[in-house]
């Protein structure tokens, strides 16, 4: 019965593209564009009978992160680019879908979801099933670097190589794309979250100070850099002193943040190097000419393009809106079914 309904009402649904990221989830509605960009955080409240109830999703839930009482849990259901908590992910997806898809009762949308390259079958299945139980009629999976390349308007269908580095919250994807296919791809589980962690570690080691995840992210966004800046900056950070146990303020500079991030940034650089080594010579020649395209939130880290340029001696291009390249690409794939068939994976 539901299948008949789907066939009949399918044309009335608006298809969705979802970038189910570790840090942020973006939703693109066919014909409308990006309609939602919210942090992938769900706040769950445990009631008296021990049952979990979703309290808040997205921005609201992110504000609760690290500030919750015992019975409320602010959870980030995605870890390292894949689903870590199946049920919470489903609840989050359902919330987002119902938010953007107003005719949700009978009409179920077709959904395309971005996944990192090289995730296991189990992880793919988890994504597919959570999207299905969140109310999808059909679920397509698309690899993130491919989506990013399409979203950045790169000529992916041409027989020339396009090298894309997509630095997300949980993973960094390096891929060489030609003729709508991935020639080489590598996914390293390093991204914005790991950078936040190393900032937290640094403050703990050097100043004996504990800060929360959101403060660490704030520091990364304000001070974080990968290459020495012309004008170094300072920032006041609030946290709890480990020795005295009293909250306090300290002043940190962009230079020490850069040092704290150096390890993580180096992982990205190494991944790019390895990718270049593995690329077939004809395509490598194209890359020399065209260089590397950076997408994803990590591309906003100051000086990262500069560092990569120095390290690889290749021209580096940061796309206009790195945060939405992936979801835009999936949306474009949704718009033209032909691209969709070529780029989706099983």
């Amino acid at each position: 019965m539901s299948r008949i309904l789907d066939i009949l009402l399918g044309p009335f649904s608006s298809d969705l593209a979802i970038d189910l990221g570790t840090a942020n989830t973006c939703v693109y509605v066919k014909g409308k564009g990006i309609v939602l960009r919210e942090p992938s955080v769900v706040a769950v409240k445990k009631d008296n009978r021990g049952q979990n109830k979703v309290l808040a999703v997205g921005v609201e839930a992110k504000r609760m992160l690290g500030r919750t009482p015992g019975n409320i849990d602010a959870i980030r259901p995605m870890k390292d680019g894949v689903i870590a908590d199946f049920e919470i992910t489903e609840a989050m997806l359902r919330h987002f879908i119902s938010k953007v898809h107003n005719r949700r009762h009978l009409v179920r949308p077709r959904i395309i979801v971005c996944v990192p390259t090289g995730i296991t079958q189990v992880e793919k299945r988890a994504v597919r099933e959570s999207a299905q139980s969140a109310g999808a009629r059909e679920v397509y999976l698309i690899e993130e670097p491919m989506a990013a390349a399409i979203g950045a308007n790169l000529p992916v269908t041409e027989p020339t190589s396009n090298m894309v580095v997509d630095i997300g919250g949980g993973t960094t994807e390096v891929a060489v794309i030609s003729l709508s296919g991935v020639v080489y791809s590598k996914s390293v589980r390093m991204g914005g979250d790991k950078m936040d962690e190393s900032i937290m570690q640094h403050l703990k080691r050097k100043y004996n100070m504990l800060i929360g995840e959101s403060s660490a992210e704030q520091i990364k966004m304000q001070l974080g850099s990968a290459y020495p800046m012309e004008k170094e900056q300072e920032m006041e950070v609030k946290g709890r002193d480990l020795v005295t146990g009293i909250p306090q303020n300290i002043l940190i500079t962009s230079e020490e943040v850069r040092k704290a991030l150096a390890d993580q940034v180096d992982v990205i650089v190494q991944a790019v190097r390895i990718a270049l080594e593995q690329t077939p010579p004809e395509l490598a020649a194209d890359i020399v000419d065209r260089g590397i395209v950076l997408t994803g939130g990590g591309a906003l880290l100051r000086g990262l393009d500069h560092l990569l340029r120095e390290e690889t001696s290749l021209p580096i291009t940061v796309v206009d809106d790195p945060l939405s390249a992936v979801v835009l690409g999936s949306g474009k794939a949704l718009d033209s079914l032909d691209i969709l068939r070529e780029v989706t994976i099983d």
Binding site: N153, V288, G291, S313, L314, P315, T317
Partner: peptide, 28 residues
């Protein structure tokens, strides 16, 4: 900038044939 001579010349001369794809050209 590590941009190849070919591309730099194409940009300065405004030679549309030699210019790379718009996304790359804009980045350069």
């Amino acid at each position: 900038t590590k941009i190849s001579r070919m591309n730099l010349v194409a940009i300065e001369e405004g030679n549309e044939q030699a210019l790379p794809h718009p996304v790359y050209a804009k980045g350069f």
